[in-house]
């Protein structure tokens, strides 16, 4: 029964994945991609990797999907969304099949699995969710750099603004109809979303969740309120928003240095203090992740096309 379910699921994932590549029209490819991410999240749940499932659904399907949809809308207005007719590209197909076959072969050639023994380390990590323990303690350096990558992407995106638009609010001018569905949605959703997002971060210490998943939910809430016109898109020169961007990575680096000064070394967390330290770092990271994601979605300062 479960094998039949897995076979169906994999067939669906492959079929939808195929549609993103071979289907006609870029818009449909984007829609198929979002569906694909949601199906893949189910696959991750089947594997028992619930943290990954949540990240896949929220970040890959959700945020990447929103980014692609927004970009498609923009390209359509710029008359750049059309695609030349697609045809079979045989050399590309040969390369693709070769790489897939190589990976498939490697699966059967893998030696017996060897995973590092975490049984001694986990009780020292301060958290009950082993994935959170890896992300915020054992491999905290990866996670710190990952939060900086989000920042670098945002800086890069801002560099794409036109010079004369630099002091304008971020993103395209957006107007919601007062009293419309979106405007009332924008007032009702935030409290609920806020609670869910904070819950995900808090729960991430011991069960499924975490700063990136929680930050994504908070970002979604913030985006809805901006689109509803309840909250105004900021400008680059607004210091509070820029401070929010660097709060998480900054707290992370400083706590790492504190580990070097007061504990066994850079990024070290003494077992007794590990839990509060991780919760503090995650709280700060969540704020920065949420703000960075919001600003990544709304894009660089822009006045639209009318003056181009």
């Amino acid at each position: 029964m479960s094998v039949a379910l897995d076979i169906t699921l994999c067939a669906l994932v492959l079929g939808v994945g195929w549609a993103t590549v071979a289907g006609h029209g870029v818009f449909r490819a984007v829609i198929f991609f979002i569906t694909y991410g949601l199906l893949l999240a189910i696959v991750w749940a089947r594997l028992g990797a619930y943290d990954v499932a949540l990240a896949e659904a929220a970040i890959s399907a959700g945020l990447t999907g929103v980014l692609l949809l927004a970009a498609h809308g923009r390209l359509r207005r710029l008359n750049a969304s059309q695609e030349v007719p697609l045809h079979l590209n045989l050399p590309a197909a040969v390369v693709a099949v070769g790489i897939a076959a190589g990976l498939g072969w490697a699966w059967f050639a893998l030696p017996a699995p060897t995973a590092p023994d975490l049984s001694q380390a986990l009780p020292q990590s301060g958290v009950g969710n082993p994935v959170t323990a890896v992300l915020l303690n054992f491999r905290a350096w990866d996670t710190l750099l990952e939060s900086v990558i989000l920042l670098a992407a945002l800086l890069g995106l801002w560099m794409l603004a036109r010079d004369h638009a630099w002091d304008k609010p971020l993103g395209l001018p957006y107007h919601a109809r007062p009293g419309g569905v979106l405007a009332s949605f924008g007032r009702v959703l935030p409290p609920i979303g806020l609670i869910f997002g904070v819950y995900l971060v808090w729960a991430g210490a011991d069960t499924t969740g975490g700063a990136f998943q929680g930050g994504t939910v908070l970002a979604a809430v913030c985006l809805v309120t901006i689109m509803a016109g309840v909250l105004h898109a900021p400008r680059v020169e607004q210091a509070a928003w820029r401070a929010a961007l660097v709060l998480g990575p900054g707290v992370f680096v400083l706590s790492g240095i504190a580990g070097a000064v007061f504990a066994q070394g850079f990024l070290a967390l003494p077992p007794a203090l590990a839990k509060p330290a991780i919760v503090t770092i995650e709280a700060a990271l969540t704020v920065s992740i949420a703000v960075t994601l919001v600003l990544l979605v709304i894009g660089p300062p822009d006045e639209g096309e009318q003056d181009a």
Binding site: L118, A121, F138, A140, W141, D142, G265, F266, L267
Partner: peptide, 12 residues
């Protein structure tokens, strides 16, 4: 330097 005091293969 083992970051966080965790030796590989657990840490970096």
């Amino acid at each position: 330097l083992s970051l966080g005091g965790w030796q590989p293969p657990i840490g970096i």
